[in-house]
């Protein structure tokens, strides 16, 4: 039996096999969307770049070489050029992807989880629980994201962990809203009524039955928001409130290149392009995932 046959078996013999079969079908559906595949490839490339940065990078990202400062792109040994301290820009972008990925991962692990929890609890219980939780959410939504993040970093002090914390705190409310909306449509369905009739407690219903239905829309939202997270992180870096020099962070690199924007354009443009490509990748992937994961299109 080949792997494809195993995946296409209409009568899976185990939980693992049935889950893998579903994943395989989702993959087939995603694969039909060419742009989503490009988005996925960009995302995978980012991950690989981050993992293998030390192997791929021709130089050290931090040590300076003032003799070769501000070399234009396509000069020998520096195909993306060098910055004002003579550091190879390609090397710094490679190492910068680690920072970017680190920020993205930390935000994914905190904000959506928290938002999902708040949204499902508010939507499921309704009444005053809903009122209290959603008004708190509204308060967070009322602040412009970057301003709130700036205020938080100003209080907590600059640094990567604090930047992540600030981004996470400012980005959970939309997830809570999405999850709540989804919960409201699911809450009165027969399958939730059925599990309540079995005697299930609220936590079991929310965790085991409501959350799986909210997850797809939250995942789509997260993927689409990743571009925004990267931009906010870069923005904080640009303003000097995120990662501190000499650590190679893309936003920080743009900020440093600002001084030579007209004469040595590549110093700021190359990390800008990196941000652009990665953000585009996440957006394309998110759009494709919408087709695959949307509960309305699933199950066919």
């Amino acid at each position: 039996m080949t792997l494809t046959e195993w995946l296409r078996d209409p009568n899976p013999a185990s939980r693992l096999q049935s889950r893998m079969a579903q994943t395989y079908l989702s993959w087939l559906r995603l694969r039909r969307n060419k742009l989503a595949v490009i988005g996925l490839m960009i995302t995978v490339a980012l991950v690989l770049m981050a993992i293998f940065a030390p192997l791929l990078a021709p130089y050290d990202p931090i040590s300076q070489n003032l003799q070769e400062r501000l070399q234009p792109p396509l000069t020998a040994g520096h195909w993306l050029g060098t910055d004002d301290f003579g550091r190879d820009i390609w090397t710094r972008i490679l190492y910068g992807s680690r920072i970017t990925l680190y920020i993205v991962l930390l935000v994914i692990l905190t904000a959506p989880v928290f938002g999902l929890l708040v949204g499902t609890v508010a939507g499921y219980f309704g009444g005053w629980v809903d009122q209290v939780l959603m008004r708190i959410t509204d308060i967070f939504l009322a602040f412009p994201k970057l301003i709130l993040a700036l205020a938080l970093v100003a209080v907590l002090g600059p640094g990567m962990v604090n930047a992540v914390l600030a981004i996470a705190i400012t980005s959970w409310p939309p997830y809570a809203r999405v999850a709540r909306a989804e919960t409201l449509t699911v809450r009165n369905s027969d399958y939730i009524a059925a599990v309540k009739l079995q005697g299930a407690g609220a936590m079991r219903v929310i965790w085991g039955h409501v959350m799986p239905m909210c997850l797809p829309s939250v995942i789509i939202r997260v993927t689409l928001d990743m571009a925004g997270v990267i931009l906010t992180a870069a923005g904080l870096g640009f303003l000097g409130l995120g990662v501190q020099p000499p650590v190679p962070e893309w936003g920080l690199m743009i900020s440093a290149g600002r001084k030579f924007l007209f004469e040595q354009w590549w110093v700021a443009t190359m990390p800008g392009l990196a941000i652009f490509i990665v953000s585009l990748g996440f957006n394309l992937l998110g759009d494709g995932l919408r087709d695959v994961l949307d509960p309305r299109s699933a199950g066919r």
């Binding site: 027969d190 399958y191 009524a193 079995q198 199950g299």
Partner: peptide, 14 residues
Amino acid sequence: QMVFQDPYASLHPR
């Protein structure tokens, strides 16, 4: 226990 009308809506799709 109860059995519902619509078998398409009474089983958890996931």
